[in-house]
Computed example of a mutant assay.
Amino acid sequence: MAGIFEIAMAGEKKYFFKLTASDGTVVAVSPLFNTIKGAAAGINAVRENAATGLVVDKSRGRSKSVPPQAATRGATTRIGAGMAAG
C-alpha cells in the first residue's frame, strides 16, 4: 500500500500536511500553509519531485550528493523548505 497524505489544521487559519507510510510511520511533515489549496499544491509538488529529488548528505560536515536509492532511512523528514505558503 502507498503512503497517505493527510491535510490537517494548525490553529484556526493554517493548514499542513503529513505523509504517513502504510505501517503508520510519519515520513514527512510540511510547513504551514495559509489555505487548503496551498497545502494541496504542496502535496502535488512532493508527488512530482520526490522520486527524482537529489539527496544531499550534510551530516558530519559533508556535502556529498547521494543517489536516491542509497538514501533509504526511516527518519522523519521536514519537507517544504522553499515552498511558498499559499
Rank of each mutant, 00 (worst) to 15 (best):
N44P: 07
A45R: 06
V66L: 01
P68M: 02
F33K: 00
V29W: 05
V66P: 00
S30Q: 06
L32P: 04
A50N: 03
P31A: 11
T25V: 13
A10K: 15
N44D: 12
K14N: 05
I79P: 00
T76G: 13
G86K: 09
T35S: 13
Q69N: 13
R78D: 15
V29F: 06
M1H: 15
G74L: 10
D23M: 05
Y15P: 03
V29D: 05
G53S: 05
M9V: 15
I4K: 15
K18Q: 08
I43F: 00
F16Y: 11
R60V: 08
G42N: 03
S30M: 06
K58V: 11
A85H: 05
R62F: 07
I7E: 00
A2D: 12
A85G: 04
G3M: 04
K37N: 14
A71V: 03
G38K: 01
G24L: 01
T77H: 06
A41D: 11
L54Q: 07
R78I: 13
Y15K: 03
A39D: 03
T76D: 07
L54K: 04
G53K: 01
T72H: 09
M9W: 08
M83H: 12
Q69H: 13
L32H: 10
T35N: 06
K14F: 09
G24H: 03
N44C: 07
A84C: 12
A2Y: 11
F16Q: 07
Y15W: 09
T72D: 06
A8L: 14
G53C: 10
G11N: 01
A21N: 05
A81D: 10
A28D: 02
G86Q: 09
P67N: 08
N34F: 12
G11M: 02
F5V: 04
V46K: 03
E12K: 09
A10E: 15
A10Y: 12
G38M: 00
N44V: 10
I36A: 09
K37D: 13
T76L: 14
L19Y: 10
G42A: 01
T52E: 04
A39F: 06
L19R: 04
A71S: 05
E12N: 10
A84N: 13
A70F: 09
K64D: 11
I7G: 02
R62Q: 08
T76V: 13
G61V: 02
S59T: 06
G82Q: 02
F16W: 08
G82R: 00
F5Y: 07
R60D: 07
M83Q: 11
Q69I: 14
A51P: 06
T76P: 07
G38T: 02
R78E: 14
A8N: 10
T72C: 10
G38N: 02
A51K: 11
T35H: 04
A28T: 04
T52N: 08
S59H: 10
E12M: 11
I36H: 14
P68N: 03
N34I: 09
K58G: 09
K58T: 13
A39G: 07
L19F: 08
T25Q: 13
N44L: 11
T20P: 04
N34V: 06
P68E: 02
Y15C: 05
V26L: 03
F33V: 02
A50W: 08
I43N: 03
V55N: 05
L32C: 13
T72P: 03
V55D: 00
A71E: 02
